[in-house]
Simulated scan of single mutants.
Amino acid sequence: MDKTFVIFKPDCMAKGLVGQVLARFESAGFSIAAAKMIQLTPEKLREHYAHVADKPFFPEIAEFMGSRPVIVAVLKGEGVVAKVRDLLGPTDSTKAPAGTIRGDLGENMMINVCHASDSDENAQIETDRFFDPAEVLG
C-alpha cells in the first residue's frame, strides 16, 4: 500500500478545515496510517524546508508554519502521492481550479491548506522526519 505525508497547515487549523479536508481524502479512498498534532520548531522547519532555507522568503515560511500547532499525517492508498496532490491542486491557490482543496479553501502560494509530499521518495523522507516507525500503522 502506498503512503504519503501531509501537513494540515496553520491556515487549515485556524479556519477549522481539518475535518473537511480529511473527509475529502477519505472520500477519495485514502485512510490514515498516522496522525498527530505538533508545534513545528525552528530546527524542524529548517530541516523540512532545507531546499529553500537559503532563499529570502524562508523566514516568512518559517514564521507562518511555526505560528500555531499543525497536524502531520500519513495517508495510505493506491497511488496516494499523485492523487493527493491532484486533490489539493497547484501550490498557488490562486491558480488552483474550483473543486480542488486549494482552489476551494486556499488563499495564495503559502496559505494553501496542506503540504503534501511530491514523490514516493520524499513521502518516506518526510514521514521519517516526523514519525517514529512504530507510529505509522498499516
Rank of each mutant, 00 (worst) to 15 (best):
M37L: 14
S27G: 15
F5C: 09
G66M: 07
R85K: 12
S67W: 10
D2F: 07
F131W: 07
D92N: 15
K9P: 04
K55I: 06
N112D: 01
Q124M: 12
P10K: 09
P56D: 12
R24T: 03
A14D: 08
K55T: 12
P69E: 08
S119K: 10
A96C: 04
N122Y: 09
I125G: 03
I38T: 05
S119C: 08
F131Q: 08
R68T: 14
L17G: 01
L88S: 01
Q124T: 13
D104L: 00
F25P: 03
D86I: 03
E121K: 14
M110W: 12
G16C: 08
I7S: 04
V70L: 06
K95R: 12
R24Q: 04
V80R: 02
D92H: 10
I61E: 01
I125M: 10
H48I: 12
L22N: 01
F58L: 09
K76W: 02
R46H: 13
F131E: 06
V52N: 09
T41V: 05
F30W: 03
I32L: 14
V74A: 04
K95S: 11
K95A: 14
M37F: 15
R46A: 15
K83A: 06
E121L: 12
E63Y: 07
P56E: 09
I101C: 00
D54Y: 02
V84Y: 02
I61N: 09
I38Q: 02
F30C: 06
L88Q: 01
P97C: 01
G77H: 03
A50K: 14
P133H: 10
Q39T: 14
F58Y: 15
K76M: 09
A98F: 06
E78F: 00
M109D: 09
E126Q: 11
V80I: 03
L22G: 09
Q20W: 01
E107T: 07
G79H: 03
P56C: 04
K9G: 05
I101W: 00
S93N: 02
D54S: 13
K36D: 11
I61L: 14
D92T: 08
N122E: 09
T41E: 01
H48G: 12
G77K: 06
D132W: 13
N108V: 06
L22C: 05
Q39E: 11
D120F: 10
R46M: 10
F8Y: 15
M109S: 13
D54I: 04
H51R: 12
K44L: 15
I71F: 06
C114Y: 00
L22D: 01
H115V: 05
P59S: 05
M109Q: 13
A116W: 10
V136I: 08
G99D: 01
L40S: 11
F5G: 08
S27T: 13
P56M: 06
S27R: 15
Q39S: 14
V80D: 00
V74T: 06
T41H: 09
S31C: 06
S27W: 03
E43G: 12
G19Q: 10
M109Y: 13
A62I: 08
V136M: 03
E47A: 15
E63S: 13
K95V: 01
V6G: 00
L45N: 11
D92K: 12
H48D: 11
A82H: 04
M110T: 15
L40Y: 11
V52K: 11
A14F: 07
E78R: 07
K9H: 06
D54Q: 13
F131G: 02
E43N: 09
D132N: 13
I38S: 04
L22H: 07
P42L: 11
T91A: 07
D128F: 05
R85D: 00
